[in-house]
Write a protein that binds this DNA or RNA. Structure first.
Lengths: 246, 246
DNA sequence: GCCGATTTGTCCGTATGTATC
DNA sequence: CGATACATACGGACAAATCGG
């Protein structure tokens, strides 16, 4: 879960309502939405609230606003052939969003202390107590992603392989009541390793690279509690984005 | 150019000022910024304006806001080893932001009409008149990116190889006075082609993949005027992102 | 080209809710 | 509990862009 709960804020309600109307193609492509003034009346709220909902749709790439003209629908339904990446979400959440069934296998679960080498690429200080996990994610029974997770032990006490095979984020948020705030991600392309080859059933004569997403994730205490390297099969990897020119 | 002009809006001025203060490390890592109330007084504006500036810093991943506590600085200066991708920007803009010198070579410049095949992956309707370009981008005299551009001829009249070797976006914005609004991007990993191998001086026995960014770009008339496939050398590719959990 | 109506953009002030300390 | 700080929401004023007459 994490983001599919019933919102209680007006602007979120309006945002979700408009978003669904757009997805259901109640507005045709390139059509202008009702004016802010009209929406104020239909939803019975202030103009600021409407504008806040619309600005979220802009960052989603659903609409574009044009001063003096209106708000134009530019939503295009996408074909969901491969695994798409969105905001901060667990594998289970992504799988659900992509309308697929996911399964996770824990390959390795151990405790370790950050040495010089680990520190250099996880950014955890030398000497930090960590959980290290290797997990294999299946989508529709095909192994697609292999994850190397480093969790700050002091922030994630009581982690077990059992929990790791289900959903760590669920455990963090609902059992430990941690609030996950933001995640810095870097995407690169790297050479395939023997581990990749073995577990993802890949042939180095075919693709010899992986799509790699490295992320540093922070909670509301401001501590970086997770470093993860996600290695994706290149033929099933897809990252979507909408950029706005300022 | 495009985004480095002097802003005249208050919220943008405040945003840029705070951003620079953070980059200059006038606030230490994890330190709380002055409260909104304080900032209202120092900048002499309303609280809404302050909040707007701060919300931009949040999406940039510079700070995190914590209800009841304050606004925490989580900015970390990044090492700029490879070519990073930001919002919608031209190659020249990116190169400047990465403090590198760029050069562009036009490999191919032609006019063509979209057939069935082109239409399927550019989304331009069959029969559309297009400019097709192949361009090679050098960074510090190393060929790193090869671009396949399709421009809508009716929206980009008078395009020449001369302009293409300089900056097309500069031409669009300053000569044609087009307003570029947003760009839908998809990142994937694809097999290397003979063209990649030849122009980027790559060896298929080494990396046999490319980082590929495909983008559909829209202007303020709501027309998709550009489809571009950017093929990056995997060893120099880096895409950064900050995701916020909702 | 001008003018007025419409529509979005910016900015302000205020009130109330909610989380932290 | 009170003080502080951010979050939500409202209403109003004026600017800037678009469009039709």
């Amino acid at each position: 879960m994490g983001s599919d709960t019933m919102p209680k804020n007006k602007y979120e309600l309006i945002y979700k309502d408009l978003k669904q109307k757009i997805e259901n193609e109640e507005f045709s492509y390139q059509e202008l939405l009702p004016s802010e003034h009209t929406l104020v009346q239909t939803y019975g709220c202030s103009r600021n609230t409407i504008r806040r909902a619309i600005s979220q749709l802009v960052t989603d790439g659903y609409v574009q606003t044009l001063q003096g003209k209106g708000v134009r629908n530019i939503f295009r339904p996408v074909e969901q052939t491969s695994f798409t990446i969105g905001g901060i979400e667990s594998f289970r959440e992504s799988a659900a969003r992509n309308h697929q069934t996911g399964r996770t296998e824990v390959l390795c679960f151990m405790e370790l202390t950050a040495d010089e080498k680990i520190s250099r690429w996880t950014d955890f200080p030398v000497g930090t107590e960590l959980y290290y996990l290797q997990r294999l994610h299946y989508l529709d029974e095909k192994p697609l992603i292999i994850n190397h997770n480093y969790f700050l032990k002091s922030a994630v006490p009581g982690l077990t392989p059992e929990i790791a095979s289900h959903s760590i984020y669920d455990y963090l948020e609902h059992t430990l009541h941690m609030t996950i705030v933001n995640s810095r991600r870097v995407m690169t392309v790297e050479k395939i390793t023997q581990i990749d080859e073995k577990y993802l059933h890949m042939d180095a004569n075919d693709y010899n690279c992986m799509a790699v997403v490295s992320s540093h994730t922070y909670n509301s205490d401001g501590v970086m509690f997770e470093f993860t390297q996600s290695r994706h099969r290149p033929d099933y990897f897809r990252f979507q984005d909408n950029a706005v020119r300022k």
